[in-house]
Each structure stands twice: as structure tokens, then as C-alpha cells.
Design a protein around this nucleic acid. Sequence first.
DNA 1: TTCTAATCGAGACGGTACGTCCCGTCTTGCC
DNA 2: GGCAAGACGGGACGTACCGTCTCGATTAGAA
Lengths: 201, 201, 201, 201
Amino acid sequence: MTARRPATGAAVLRPELTEAVVEAVLAELAEVGYGRLSMQRVAARAGVGKSALYRRWPGKDCMVVDVVGRFGVPDDPAPDTGTLAGDLRELVGGMRDWLDHPRLGLVLPDLLAEARRSPDFAAAFRERLAGPRRARSRAVLERAVARGELPAGRAGGADAELVVDVLGSVPFWRLTVHGAPLDDDLADRLVALVVRGLTTG
Amino acid sequence: MTARRPATGAAVLRPELTEAVVEAVLAELAEVGYGRLSMQRVAARAGVGKSALYRRWPGKDCMVVDVVGRFGVPDDPAPDTGTLAGDLRELVGGMRDWLDHPRLGLVLPDLLAEARRSPDFAAAFRERLAGPRRARSRAVLERAVARGELPAGRAGGADAELVVDVLGSVPFWRLTVHGAPLDDDLADRLVALVVRGLTTG
Amino acid sequence: MTARRPATGAAVLRPELTEAVVEAVLAELAEVGYGRLSMQRVAARAGVGKSALYRRWPGKDCMVVDVVGRFGVPDDPAPDTGTLAGDLRELVGGMRDWLDHPRLGLVLPDLLAEARRSPDFAAAFRERLAGPRRARSRAVLERAVARGELPAGRAGGADAELVVDVLGSVPFWRLTVHGAPLDDDLADRLVALVVRGLTTG
Amino acid sequence: MTARRPATGAAVLRPELTEAVVEAVLAELAEVGYGRLSMQRVAARAGVGKSALYRRWPGKDCMVVDVVGRFGVPDDPAPDTGTLAGDLRELVGGMRDWLDHPRLGLVLPDLLAEARRSPDFAAAFRERLAGPRRARSRAVLERAVARGELPAGRAGGADAELVVDVLGSVPFWRLTVHGAPLDDDLADRLVALVVRGLTTG
DNA sequence: TTCTAATCGAGACGGTACGTCCCGTCTTGCC
DNA sequence: GGCAAGACGGGACGTACCGTCTCGATTAGAA
């Protein structure tokens, strides 16, 4: 589920071709989705031969995971606005924007569907895409405990896990089931609900 | 205003064949998913000709939506355990069991992915599958308001919408992203989080 | 290879439907030919149900042979102009006109092709179509012998057989291989050639 | 001005596959004829994929014309026995043998029928099959004129055209309408008839 | 510099599925 | 029982891709 490396230094896969292919894969994914993505069309769109694709990846699955993996992880560190609510708002907003991205947004549901069936795919997905985002959310919660905003017991363990899921799943669900991204009002209400849920009782 | 009768002669689609096809579609969906589902395999599995399929549905998309729609709506009414927490636990558990169903569970992510791209598909999905489930959740919240467990202002409007999303999306997210269904402990914690979020502040 | 007759007199095949079907068969044959003729289209064109066709004939082959047989035999007797050359001109002209008929002309090559493969078809073809025309030609030759225009020995036996073939095959060949009917000049030359061939030596 | 070479890379249609397909087409044509010839059966019989067929020809029509065209032209030059009658006997015998060929013989009527309806087909048929054979017949007649056996005026123009038709059409007609090839006696009589027709008057 | 080995495009290869059309049979309900 | 309407299983059509494989041309490191 990852890119091949050349065996010896004799002739190296030309990186500009790889880039062209990556661009083409993203464009095709956005337009027709994973299921209807065709290696032939990707190759044609990138202006390369089919063999250039199969030389880099063993198949469609791996190619897509690898390509999407290159663009899924946010480069910036976890938000730090000084308050839990502020940080959560940032997280939810970031998730929403990622999902609504004109290129990547349409792809995530495809990947989830594929992951539900293929364990390899699921593992790659968790490692490359879900994992890094979850780590950012955890960091926010831990910082809130450190600041004393949250009781350590509740936010540190299973509840943290749960909140991480809520922050990821609700923006996804709104976009997919309702066909429109989570608006600012609902995002604020979601953050407020979670904060109240974590800090009371 | 009744169902249209043919002018003369009978030639009605034989219902036992429709049932056989529906069974075959579910089985194929569970095994290979929507993307790799093949009409000819469905026909062969059901022991019918391909034309029997195309006589009933104009294509793969419609067939799958229709077939899944027949099994997506729970027959039983909204749970009524007497307490909001109890009702929510029922809802979350029902959602989890539906998603984890050996036949339907594997299909939902496929449908979401398809819905994200095709507006027709999305509309059918919302009407046949998402809508009825959301109505059940709303009924639970309204009953809690009627019982005085929830303040009317909060549970009636946008917050209710939000909670309905949380109840649906988290079980889905656990199963899809983590590859394992929401366990009882997490389900309880989710319900508790939501109840605290709704009743405090 | 012939039409079915009703077993008993209880309910009789309605003759006006038969006529409509025959018309439709001829029209379809002229337009698309035997190979691409479809029972469905014939039934639709005739405004009847498919079962009306299969109730009258066991299949496509028989239906076409029967229909064409109804129109292939010239009603008028063998020509009698008083001279062999005149009679032959009439025969060749009649053959040419029949082959060039807007409805039947396009069908004969289809029937020949079918006959080459199916002995039943060939027998029906010979009996219904080829036989009557050959009889007319033979009558002309016999009359020429009776008039003393031809020596009995030559025109009576194998040579007559041969001439009958020449008179039928050449107009067919011109039309089919050259795509244009035998013109008057060539028809005259053909007759002259045959007459010289028969009367000299 | 040589054959065009591909810009880069090879990927040339493998000739041994073409040969296998040609063999399969001939075999299927002989067995079931043009109308019932099926591309998938041809492919299966040749042991190739269907796409190998469509890569070579755009459809059934073209494939059959091309395949038959490869085998329709006699390699040997026009016969030259020294006498007109001898040459004509050779021509008629050759035509009869070609039509009675276990593979090609059954196909010609199919082709004629198709040609009668499709001008493209007819043109291909005339160019590839009929044309070369007619040229051979014409050469024989011209040689007879050169030898002084025939008067130039008669054999050179329209009468030659006619004789060429007679020589082709009669063997075809016997085989197709009577179901049996022209026997030697009738062939001799036909030649005699034509020679008398050409040399007298 | 020459040799050599891998990459490059192009595309043929055997397959599989698509959705459409038609086959000949069979069933149903009206006349 | 004739009849229309049309569902039924089957099968061929021509198209689009799949993943593999084979070409000749190009290119770049190792000898």
C-alpha cells in the first residue's frame, strides 16, 4: 500500500511524471470518484503511459491511498487559542474545510467505503489520514486538562476517544447525509454541547 | 387513484423473482460492495435472466437504492423507556446494530460515497433511509421535552438537529474508521455526554 | 415450412390479421432483409401481438417462405408471342422485373442464402417459387419445338434445363453483382445468344 | 512512401492471431452462415478475446468481407488451353469448384444477399471477389479474338460482358437453386451453347 | 565514451461487465 | 379459443476498462 522504490540507481522513476500522475489522480477522483476511476484515463490525463502508473504502484488501490495520503495531513500543528472551546472550534472548522475541499472532499467517502471492505486499505487509511488528525484532537484535549479546564479523569481516557470521534464524524455526517457543510451556528452549538458534556456532571 | 392496471392481458412482474433478486443484490453487496457489484452476477445468483433486472430497474444505481431502501427502515416505533438516557441508548444501539448487520452494514458506506456524488442518489438515500431514522430520533427528543426532562428551547430546534446527527454519525464513524462497532461502554458515555450537554448550561 | 391449420373449427385465425402480418413481413423484408427481420417488429408493424404470429407459423423461416410464396408466382400464363425470341424476351423481362420489384426483389438473395444452408427451406423455395417459373420457361421451349423453331433433340432435354437456368440466373446475377438490373440491350443480346446457341450447330 | 511506422513503441497486431481468427471466421461461416455468425463464437473458436477482433475490424460486416476477400481470388492466371471451348470449360469448372468449396461455397450466397442491401458491402464484394474473376474471363475472350476464334466486334464489348455473366451465374444458380453443383455434362453443354452463340450469326 | 539497464510512450493481449435488443416460450385476462 | 400485452431465460451486440505484456526509443549511471 505504499510506493515502490527503484532497485538500483541505474534509471530512476522520473519525479515530474509522478507529480503529473498525482495531479491527474486527484482530478479524476474529484470528478468521477474512486469506483469509476480508470487507470487509462488517469494515464491519459497525466500524459503518460499506463506502464508509468503500474511501475510506481501495484494497482489502483495503492495508487489512490498513496496519492490521497500525500494531501490528507494538515501541516500546521494542533490549534492553541487558549481555551478549549476555541481550540475545538478550530478543529471542527478545519475538519469541515478539509471535507469540503473541492478535490479531497469528494474522495473521503469513497475511501471509507473501500476501507470498510479491505483491511489493508483500512490500515493504510488509519495510518496516513485518520491517525494524524486524531492526534491533533487529542493534543487539544490534553492541553485543556493541563490548563485545568477539564478534569483529568474524564478527558484523558475513553471520553477523549469519544470526543475525538464526535469532532470528526459530525462534520462528515452533515456534509454527506445532508449534502451541505456544517454551518457556523451548528459548529458553535456542537462545540458548546461537547464542552458542557465534558465539564459538567 | 389506485395503482394503474394494464389495459388488457396480465404480464405482471412476478414478485417471487423480485424477491430472489433482492436477496441476491444484498448478498452481492455484502460480499463485493457497490462498486464491484455486477448485474450479471446478481442475475446469475438469483437464477434469473439479466432482462428480469432491467425490467424492474433502469440500472444499477436505482436497483441498489431500491433494494437497500426496503430494509433500511426499522419497523418498530421510536423507543420509549421512560427516560431520555434510556431512549437514547436504544437509538444508539439500534443504529449500531443496523450498521453492523452482516448484510446491510457493509453497504452504507458505499451508499454514502455514491450519494456524495450523485444528487439523485443522495435524495433517494435521504428519503428512504436517513429520513425515517431521523424522525425516530426527533420523536425521542420531543417526548423528553414533553416529560420536562429537556428545556423546550434547546431540544426543539437546531440543537435537536445536532443531537440527531451525533447519534447517527458516531456509531457509523466508530465502525468505519476504527473497524469495530461502538462498544457498550462507549455508547453509555456518548449518551451521558449528550444528556449532560443538553440539560446543563 | 407452411402455415399451420387450425385443429378444429371452434375459433378460427382471423384472416384480416393474417393479411396485416403478410403486409408487414413484406415491408420489413424489403427494408431490413431476412437476417435482420425481427418478429417483434413485424408484430408491431402489423398491429398484432407476437402470439398471433407464432400461432400461424412455427417460426421466422416458415413465415417468410409462406409470405413470399404468396407473391412469387406470376398469375399470367407463359408468354406466347409467336416466336422463340419474343417469348424469351418476355421471360427475361419478367424475371428482371420480378427481381427488381421494390418489395420482393431485395428478398430473393436472402432466400437463396438461407436455402443454401437449410434443406427444408430449399425444398419450400423450389416448390413455391422456382418451380412455377421454370415451368413457364419450359413451356416456351416446348412450344418452340412444336412450331419447328427448335430441333426436338436439343431443346427437349438437358439443353432446355440449361437454358432455363441461363434465363433465370443472368438477370439475377446482373442485379446482384452489378447492382443494376439487366438493361434492354443486354437482354436482347442474351436472347440472341441463346437462340443462336440453340438453333445452330 | 513506405508503410507507416508507429511513432514509438511496437504494439503491432500479431499476425498469427489474425490467421487464427480468419480460420475461425471461415469455419463459422461455413457452419452457420453470415446471419447467425457471432463475434463471440468466432473469438472463442480462435482462442482470442473479443477485443482482438474489434481491434482488427470495426464490425462483423467488414470482418467477413475482408476474410472472404483473402480467399476468393484464384492465384493461377487465366487458363490457356489453346481453344476457346477449352478455356471456357476451365473457367466454368473453376467457378463450380470455388462455389462448391466446403468453406467458401456456403458463404457466397450470404454475401450476395448482404451486398444487395448494403452499397459498401457490394462495393467491397465487387472489388475483392467479383472483379478479379471477371478479369480472368475477359482475358480468355480477348485471347480467343487474338487467335481469330471469335470476331472482334462481338466478343469485345457488350457480348463479352454478357458471357462473363453467364459463366459466373449459371454454376451459382445450379448450386443454389437446385442444391447440386453443375455436372460435367451440363458444363460442356453450357460451353457449347456459348461458343455457338458467339461464333454464329 | 561506450555499454547497459531501466524507464518511457504506445498499445495489443485475454478477460469481464456494461446496457440494449431480440429470440422463442409462456402466462394472464379480455372478448 | 383467439387475441394483446408483455414477462420470462437466454444470448449476442459493440464499448469501455481491467491488469499484463511486448515492443522500439530514450536516457543516465557504471565501466
